[in-house]
Amino acid sequence: MPNRLVNKVAIVTGGGSGIGLESALLFADEGAKVVVADLNLDAANRAVALIAQKTPNAQAIAVKTDVGNEAQVKALVDTAVKTYGRLDIMFNNAGIMHPEDDNAITTEERVWDLTMQVNVKGVWFGCKYAVQAMRANPTPVGGSIINTASFVGLMGAATPQIAYTASKGAVLAMTRELAMIHAREGIRCNSICPGPLKTPLLMNFLDTAEKRDRRLVHLPMGRFGEAIEIAQAACFLASNESSYITGTDFKVDGGLTSCYVTPLGEPALEPPSSLVPKQ
């Protein structure tokens, strides 16, 4: 259904690349006014330029934001409301996976603290100021908050990334509680749990064929997901099509978290051609 987000105002954090970029493009294409937030302002500006190229009549602005800085997140939400008059969608997508993140013994405290600052506090700050903005909306009051968690928040792994895993578990718990607190205000809050994706964040972490193959063997579909596949899930949660959905952990993981033994002897599925980024 086209134009699912007409008359809605959306913030997408981490909007300069990966899931955030694909979501910003899709939200704009579906009619939303989009605020692209990213620590890398050049990347955010490129995203806005891509939006203008893909959807010429779309409205979008770029805002440099460190989501781990409360004052900057407040300023981001204030900018969205000042520019477009309201806030309907808050996609708290920005996050990090530190290359030195390992197990509980070897991971340094600075890695843990930085991961929590961005992945947990960043989501908390985004929710905190989004709720206040959504409460102040003229009719209709309310909105949709979407938080990027991960399948690792739902299951353990023997390839340790302890700070990242703990941070995503915190996002899941926070999302569920916020959903209950604000349900009767018309503010829905859901998390998305992506499986392993073909994005720079994960591919830089899985920097050898051995590491990538170890992940792929556990994927029932036999392939990494595409960022656009997560963006489509976010668009659904942002739209009125999901009006009776709140507090859910939306798994978009190729079946990974439902898997015990993966299929053998079958070729891996390729993503639909329409979803493969054009080179």
Rank of each mutant, 00 (worst) to 15 (best):
H218G: 14
L201F: 06
N7Y: 04
A71F: 09
N119F: 09
V67W: 05
E185I: 12
G16Y: 01
C189M: 10
A163G: 01
T65G: 13
A44V: 07
A149D: 03
P220S: 00
I19W: 11
E22D: 12
I245Q: 11
A268S: 15
T148Y: 01
N69K: 13
V12W: 04
M134E: 05
Q161F: 15
I192P: 10
E270D: 08
G14T: 00
E210Q: 02
Q117C: 09
Q53T: 03
P271R: 07
T139L: 11
V48H: 01
A158H: 10
S273T: 14
R46L: 09
P277R: 11
I245Y: 09
G85S: 07
G225M: 00
G247W: 13
A157K: 15
S23Q: 01
T65M: 13
D101Y: 10
L269I: 05
L269R: 12
F151G: 07
N204D: 15
T83P: 04
V123Y: 06
A149M: 03
E210F: 05
V77I: 10
V81L: 08
I245H: 02
L76A: 02
L202F: 06
L154F: 07
L50R: 14
T165N: 08
D101S: 15
V120M: 08
Q161H: 15
I230Q: 02
N45L: 14
P263H: 04
I96M: 05
R135P: 00
T65C: 15
C235N: 11
L41S: 07
E241L: 06
S23T: 11
L237M: 13
L154N: 14
N103H: 09
P194A: 02
N92G: 00
V118W: 06
D102A: 12
A163E: 01
D113R: 08
K33I: 04
F224K: 04
G186S: 05
V81N: 04
L237T: 03
E266T: 14
E100F: 12
N69G: 06
N240D: 15
S144E: 03
L5G: 06
L216H: 10
A157T: 14
T79P: 02
L76Y: 03
T13N: 03
P271Q: 07
M221T: 12
P194M: 05
T115S: 14
F250G: 06
I192H: 03
L264C: 13
L50P: 09
V9R: 08
E270M: 06
S17F: 05
V67Q: 09
